[in-house]
Design a protein around this nucleic acid. Structure first.
Lengths: 156, 156
DNA sequence: TGCAAATAGGATTACAATAGTCCTATTTAG
DNA sequence: CTAAATAGGACTATTGTAATCCTATTTGCA
């Protein structure tokens, strides 16, 4: 529960590899061997990244993949959403609100979960491929700033 | 992917019902009928909440469940974690670090995902049952404050 | 021009996790 | 004593994920 799929995991590792090894086009075989994972399965993930415009492919011998834009402009949300439908923490949530909850008007879950959903989306959208390539140390935590403010320790 | 289980969904709805109907002890049957869900399945969720000290049970006729502490002191994380193991966005993450990633030292995923994990945990821990009972409108979004600060619109 | 190495993608299988059911035991107020 | 409640083990059904298999297509190059 609340776990990213292997396809997403491999997709992240693959684009990280592409971003970190700036020797241009890279084949699926090379990535699969480097990560020691199934070539076939990785290919599916790469094809989805390609269909979503995150990477570009070149067919034929000497073919392979490259990032279609700088790592700073690829978000974690982009990579995750490319592999499946938009994530939803509960069923009665969609971005376009086309889902009618079985609990309808009485649903006490939808509104608060929509809020949680938005905050998670916010994290995933604001984290770039460049961030997760460079970070060995934890990135800034918005909630720490929040606590810092509320505890009145601000030196501003 | 990245979805809370039905057991968690029902657990949240159940404790919301308990928090909002302050008539003391409530039976699983009453909650199941109110939510129109399987009594048996809900019972499992309630038993896990009980084992984790979130609700208290009274057996026998006239038995049922009550919250074991005020709704302000029960977090969304408490409710979620009661139903299964601590959530982990990727396999190579645990709180106690007893998992050795197959990628070991070369793992480019662990550190950035640990950060994402911490930020999600932070959201779930800081959201109380009282919050999700009262909120019809979205709660405060830490990232909005972050943006607000960084865009230099502060009036402090 | 034909081969080898690459992507594209449909179809299928294997496995794991979730969701839900069934049944029995135990507790307890009246 | 009995009815109504919780406790919980065992099982089944369903779904989603992970992985594999196979074939088609593209393309650089000897």
């Amino acid at each position: 529960m609340f776990k990213l799929s292997k396809k997403v995991e491999y997709a992240i590792l693959a684009v990280q590899y592409m971003a970190m090894n700036s020797k241009g086009i890279v084949s699926a075989k090379e990535i699969a061997e480097h990560l020691n994972i199934s070539f076939e399965f990785l290919s599916k993930a790469l094809q989805k990244l390609m269909k979503n415009g995150i990477i570009e492919s070149k067919q034929g011998i000497k073919g392979g993949y490259v990032l279609s834009r700088p790592a700073e402009l690829i978000s974690l949300a982009d990579i995750i959403n490319a592999q499946s439908n938009e994530i939803r923490v509960v069923d009665c949530l969609t971005d376009d609100s086309d889902c009618v909850c079985v609990r309808e008007e009485d649903c006490t879950l939808r509104s608060p979960m929509q809020n949680i959903q938005q905050r998670i989306n916010s994290i995933l959208k604001s984290t770039s491929l460049a961030d997760i390539c460079s970070s060995k140390k934890p990135l800034i935590d918005a909630n720490e700033i929040l606590n810092y403010k509320f505890e009145g320790n601000s030196d501003e």
